[in-house]
């Protein structure tokens, strides 16, 4: 019996023991910033748009995914080192600038401690001058849009929609909206109205305008607006 007790004791001790070589420091450097056009963040859908970081020099090269938040910001924690930042073709309602012919749109970044960096890209459109107003039955909204890419790659607006949700996460995909309706797309402006969900009881609601561009999967959004009812 006593031997058994010793075995248990030894086993318990082993749980606390560990090998020094296993203990890496955790990544300590924050890499944060926004995806911007002329300094203004580009708002996107929830969990939709991502870019990738690659860190060469350690054998197997696997991408580190960075997802954009709704407001176009990103944040990740990494080890110090030199990384390559690459946008994925066809992701996001924008195009990455080409740095130079050889480098393509890859951006070289070096992380040494917390790093904040805004990345300039070229969006197809930008929204401005959003106005929202709520009544007891519906939310009205209007906005102006500017076409930024007007050369051979110019793309038309497929549709614009006004999304409403009861949390500040508002997007076109998944569960990120309660109701939506199509908006009227005029020349340079959008307007529309969405009825509140049936039996909506909360004293506030969040609204957001989304614009779908022909042939581009990820929509462009306005900032989320909280409205008191």
């Amino acid at each position: 019996m006593k031997i058994t007790n010793y075995i248990y004791l030894a086993a318990t001790a082993l749980l606390f023991a560990s090998c020094e070589i296993d203990n890496y420091d955790e990544p300590e450097s924050f890499f944060t910033g926004n995806i911007v056009y002329n300094g203004e963040p580009i708002e996107v859908g929830a969990r939709e748009v991502r870019f990738q970081l690659f860190q060469p020099g350690f054998g197997a090269l696997a991408p580190l995914d960075m997802h954009l938040d709704l407001d176009g910001s990103f944040s990740g924690r990494f080890f110090d080192g030199d990384y390559k930042l690459k946008f994925i073709n066809g992701q996001g309602p924008f195009k990455a600038y080409e740095v130079n012919e050889q480098q393509g749109d890859t951006i070289f970044i070096s992380l040494r401690g917390n790093t904040e960096m805004d990345i300039e890209v070229l969006p197809y459109y930008m929204l401005s001058g959003e106005t929202f107003s709520a009544s007891s039955t519906a939310v009205d909204a209007a906005a102006n849009y500017d076409q930024i890419i007007t050369d051979a790659d110019a793309r038309a607006i497929e549709f614009a929609r006004l999304y409403l949700n009861d949390t500040e996460q508002v997007s076109n995909n998944g569960d990120y909206h309660r109701v939506w309706s199509d908006m009227t797309v005029g020349s340079g402006n959008l307007s529309g109205s969405t009825a509140l969900p049936d039996g909506y009881a909360k004293p506030y609601i969040f609204a957001r305008i989304g614009v779908k561009i022909v042939g581009v999967e990820d929509m462009l959004f306005s900032p989320v607006q909280k409205l008191d009812l």
Binding site: A60, L61, A62, P63, I88, G90, Q91, N173, G174, E217
Partner: peptide, 29 residues
């Protein structure tokens, strides 16, 4: 359900891409 452009052709795993740099990735992923 939402089917994205990146779903038309399945992603080739990172292990395959690492072992063979000649393999190009599928679009929109």
């Amino acid at each position: 359900d939402r089917f994205q452009f990146g779903n038309y052709y399945s992603e080739i795993g990172a292990g395959i891409l690492n072992n063979n740099p000649l393999i190009v990735r599928n679009p929109n992923q």
